[in-house]
Design a protein around this nucleic acid. Structure first.
Lengths: 133, 133
DNA sequence: CCAATGTATAGCTTCTTGCTTATATAAGCG
DNA sequence: CGCTTATATAAGCAAGAAGCTATACATTGG
């Protein structure tokens, strides 16, 4: 199962949010999730299993309980994947300068007289700014 | 459909990667994807529809073709959600200092003599570093 | 050892999704 | 115009995922 599939489920996302505040027992998670989403203990347990098996969470037995905690590695992978798009909303300063000086004007010219469509969006024309100019 | 579900599919992720290099016609995308994943033109078209309807891509008709481009907003949303976990792998400097001075030693003491288990992972004990100490 | 508590697994059902083939729409060209 | 090319939609099917109930396993306290 791919990392993105794991995060595709709202219950699992919520569980991770809970774990982000520190370790939590399976039971404690079940209670909150059961409350918020109305699903049974086995249901939650299965989600925990998915998180576990895909490296999003680690477990530590403590007596009869099982304490879950976030493991961030897969999240970091996702972050890395996202990295290749990050330039779309955090352009480098020089790229931004180029944008302002050249792109916008040119774009505006092309659009003159047309009605407002999706074509307005910056990334529609944006070529990737070279990383090392 | 949630943003994470959209990215759950490898074909859609790949399409976004293609679009990240600039606009591409539906047909061009279909060709590459069909090649790489062995799926039909309608199959690709449906994926493009999902990307479109969920705001990951915009379309611009040009003659008989349809040019697709990345729209980064939903990606930014994902990036934002990921933000609440980013501290796990990029601790603030002051938090890092605290870590080094206090956490590590304490942790090591607690672990002394135990066998190597999942408990070794930093985030297992990690409480969220206060954002503004 | 037994019962109680905490947690996980099994087996089943239902809903969703990602394909496929076939067909519709739409623009360009002779 | 009608044909071709580019793209989208429709309908149907198969696989997988998420939920449920019932049950098994494990630790602990009496």
């Amino acid at each position: 199962m791919h990392a993105f599939d794991v995060l595709g489920d709202p219950v699992r996302r919520r569980i991770l949010e809970l774990l982000a505040d520190g370790e939590m027992s399976s039971g404690a998670v079940s209670e909150v999730i059961g409350d918020e989403f109305g699903i049974s203990q086995p249901g939650v347990s299965q989600h925990l299993k998915v998180l576990r098996e895909n490296g999003f969470a680690t477990v530590r037995p403590e007596g009869t309980r099982r304490l879950y905690a976030v493991n961030s590695e897969p999240l970091r992978d996702i972050d890395a994947w996202l990295g290749q798009f990050r330039r779309f909303w955090t352009p480098h300063l020089d790229a931004l300068a180029t944008e302002l000086a050249r792109g916008k004007r040119e774009r505006r010219r092309r659009e003159a007289g047309r009605d407002k469509t999706a074509g307005d969006r910056a990334e529609n024309q944006a070529r990737p700014p070279r990383s090392k100019p």
